[in-house]
Design a protein around this nucleic acid. Sequence first.
DNA 1: GCAAAAGTGTTTATCTTACACCCATGA
DNA 2: TCATGGGTGTAAGATAAACACTTTTGC
Lengths: 225, 225
Amino acid sequence: MSSPDRDAARVGVAVDVVVLSLEQLQDQHCPIVLVGSRGHDPFAGAWALPGGAVRAREDLESAARRVLVSALGPRRPRHVEQLASFGAPDRDPRGRVVSVSYLALLPTPHAADGGWRWWHAAAPPPLAFDHADILSSAVERLRAKLSYSNVAYGLLPDEFTLSDLQAVYEAVLGRPLDKRNFRKKVMALGMVTPAQGQRRGSHRPAQLYRFAGAGLVLLDNVITT
Amino acid sequence: MSSPDRDAARVGVAVDVVVLSLEQLQDQHCPIVLVGSRGHDPFAGAWALPGGAVRAREDLESAARRVLVSALGPRRPRHVEQLASFGAPDRDPRGRVVSVSYLALLPTPHAADGGWRWWHAAAPPPLAFDHADILSSAVERLRAKLSYSNVAYGLLPDEFTLSDLQAVYEAVLGRPLDKRNFRKKVMALGMVTPAQGQRRGSHRPAQLYRFAGAGLVLLDNVITT
DNA sequence: GCAAAAGTGTTTATCTTACACCCATGA
DNA sequence: TCATGGGTGTAAGATAAACACTTTTGC
């Protein structure tokens, strides 16, 4: 009737992190994911999400952040959240390992190095373990959350133009949005506030904005009154 | 750069299940949670969520369902979903145990027996481990999900009246809803379809309905065009 | 001046809200 | 007949959707 007993199976606990970002691809943005090539069995030579075992006295999120440092170096993602846990008994051929997966969002992908590589999230290479499932959940979660929160902040720098913001939405939702309606909407939601300064280019300068709320902010719901 | 290594901490993995239902309380419904009294240390005598260690060759959700059987007997919840994993290093005084928590929804609470007891989810007794946190996540998740999905099916029998459905929403959201607008909304969403037959009482008979989609169905979003 | 992206309003349709009475039954 | 919950419509306001041109800059 109660929590953990003596007959607890001693299993490994790992964290696997889905690092998502956006890539500019011929005047379209598209979601990309960071994967690394495995140097040893199982799945030697295959691609896998950054991950690693949780250490004895380490929080789950700390483990995820440590794994992130090992994959990203000094670059810190702007958003990290727990996704779900995956625990099929045979998901790791070496033995029982439960994976607690995390989603991390990075504003701009750095040049990948040291065996890491960015792939299109929609068409990744074959992935080790159940990492393809983990990746799908991450993409699905991001898409859903974009629609009822300001998670987009994870994919943008501190200051950005409304066109940048719209590009994030379009990339993740996978469809074009109307510029005027989009601007009206995000302004009406109070999601962003104007910042000092503009971005210049060979065109009319664009007003810079920043997100109004510091962290994650949830929006409306369907069932109201 | 890859998943679990040899230095994996061997930790226990447990599942803890938040079983939620609704109780009729002086012409109001309110969310209740099933807790059991712990017979042994740690936290002997305290209340705790149903939970238990994951077995060696057992899927996480299977473990959750096994725990549910031990707490509910033959009664099967109508909805079970993974909530989140909790892994603070010191959450279990006996050693490292990561808890994968689940949310289960039950249409009508049975009479609790064998040390189990229903408590108001909003005002539970002090709970063992970090079960209070787990309970809060569950309630929050349910509340959020009610607004953008048909999870309410988990708290209702196959056939129900629109007043029943409204009562579920009111109980979980904690505020009254307008009857006419509520009915218009759920009909317009196509969430339910009329069933054969009516429920009779000392008043006008009520049309019975069932949910249109079989499982969980998600609804609209805020950012659309 | 030309290319390139920024910025802006209006109309129509749809959805949301607020609100009050009659109905069918069992006792 | 009365008490109880079931069932229904409308008008006003708010929101969403569709849609195209002018502005500002760098080159």
